[in-house]
């Protein structure tokens, strides 16, 4: 009786040993499959000093998204005016952000979304342009 229990336990452990290799999603990286659809703002939209720039976008990918970053950049100076990032483990995400326009000069702005996907150290980057015209 006891020998049977021992053997059963041993077989169970050995079975788990054999089955223990952790499988991983090996979907080939294809950054062109990253989709960022902006609902707000509209391309070329002009904002005034004191306006709140609302950023809403739907981000999707064929496999796992590990994270994404959102930045608003002054294209002339290269200065980052707004930055936010999210750690994720999903294949779709609704991105929401807001930035209060405090600029005193007419400025071309880049809205930049960087999407980090599984098995890639390089993010997929999607951009759009707006402007601040106080």
């Amino acid at each position: 009786m006891m020998n049977k229990i021992f053997k059963g336990l041993l077989v169970f452990i050995l079975f788990n040993f054999i089955a223990s290799c952790q499988k991983k999603d090996n979907t080939p990286v294809n950054l062109s499959k990253v989709s960022v659809v902006f609902a707000n703002p509209a391309t070329g939209q002009i904002f005034r000093k004191g306006d709140t720039v609302m950023i809403n976008a739907v981000v999707t990918y064929i496999s796992e998204i590990n994270g994404l970053g959102l930045q608003i950049i002054d294209t002339a100076k290269g200065e980052i005016l707004y930055s936010d990032d999210h750690d994720l483990h999903t294949d779709h995400f609704t991105l929401n952000g807001s930035w209060l326009d405090t600029l005193s000069n007419t400025t071309a702005l880049q809205v930049k979304v960087s999407v980090f996907v599984a098995n890639s150290t390089i993010p997929a980057v999607r951009t759009m342009y707006i402007s601040s015209n106080p």
Binding site: M2, N3, F6, K7, L9, L10, I13, L14, N16, F17, S20, C21, Q22
Partner: peptide
């Protein structure tokens, strides 16, 4: 014999994880 089974079980547990990831 029982002690032997126990030792094997412990070793199996340890080696299970050492190669798993």
């Amino acid at each position: 014999m029982r002690s032997l089974y126990f030792i094997i079980a412990i070793i199996a547990c340890a080696s299970y994880n050492s190669v798993a990831c």
